[in-house]
Computed example of a mutant assay.
Amino acid sequence: MYLTYKNYLVAKGVGLCVGFCYSHCTNNYKKEMDFFLSILGEMKADLPHCLDLEGNKGQSKAKVNAFAFAWLGYIQKKTAITPILCTGYSFFSNFTSAVAKYLL
């Protein structure tokens, strides 16, 4: 938490736009996002929250998609900010059109 806050203050202090990304597709998305939001505290994002998902961690394509869609929808509901998806070109084909509707 301290390092995150320190990095946030330094970035904001030099005029950078700040955004946050976090994810592990093997986690419970609600618990993960509630934790993520709790550690942000007073830190405010200038950019949309970002699902950074570039590997399946041994999960099936269906599981990765279900996780991604749930994560993106949950964070949007909790923050009223439409999130974005960060992934690699070689991993993007793992997502269905339901997930692909979010900006990259």
Score class of each variant (00 low, 15 high):
residue 29 Y to H: 10
residue 7 N to V: 13
residue 83 P to I: 05
residue 33 M to F: 06
residue 64 V to S: 02
residue 102 Y to V: 05
residue 82 T to F: 03
residue 52 D to Y: 08
residue 29 Y to T: 07
residue 49 H to W: 10
residue 73 G to S: 10
residue 89 Y to L: 13
residue 28 N to K: 09
residue 36 F to Q: 10
residue 80 A to G: 11
residue 95 F to V: 02
residue 7 N to G: 10
residue 28 N to V: 08
residue 19 G to C: 05
residue 48 P to G: 09
residue 32 E to I: 05
residue 90 S to E: 13
residue 16 L to H: 00
residue 9 L to Q: 11
residue 103 L to K: 05
residue 49 H to P: 11
residue 20 F to Y: 11
residue 11 A to M: 06
residue 83 P to A: 01
residue 76 Q to K: 14
residue 7 N to D: 09
residue 72 L to S: 03
residue 85 L to H: 10
residue 41 G to K: 13
residue 44 K to R: 11
residue 80 A to P: 00
residue 69 F to Y: 08
residue 2 Y to M: 10
residue 33 M to G: 01
residue 51 L to Q: 01
residue 50 C to Y: 04
residue 26 T to E: 14
residue 31 K to Y: 09
residue 67 F to K: 09
residue 80 A to S: 15
residue 23 S to T: 13
residue 11 A to P: 00
residue 33 M to W: 09
residue 54 E to M: 04
residue 38 S to F: 12
residue 27 N to I: 02
residue 15 G to Y: 02
residue 101 K to T: 11
residue 8 Y to C: 01
residue 41 G to F: 09
residue 98 A to Y: 06
residue 20 F to T: 04
residue 55 G to F: 13
residue 37 L to E: 02
residue 27 N to T: 11
residue 8 Y to F: 06
residue 94 N to D: 08
residue 97 S to W: 09
residue 60 S to D: 08
residue 45 A to W: 00
residue 75 I to E: 05
residue 73 G to D: 04
residue 74 Y to H: 08
residue 104 L to M: 06
residue 6 K to H: 12
residue 96 T to S: 11
residue 37 L to I: 10
residue 66 A to C: 03
residue 54 E to C: 07
residue 55 G to C: 13
residue 103 L to E: 07
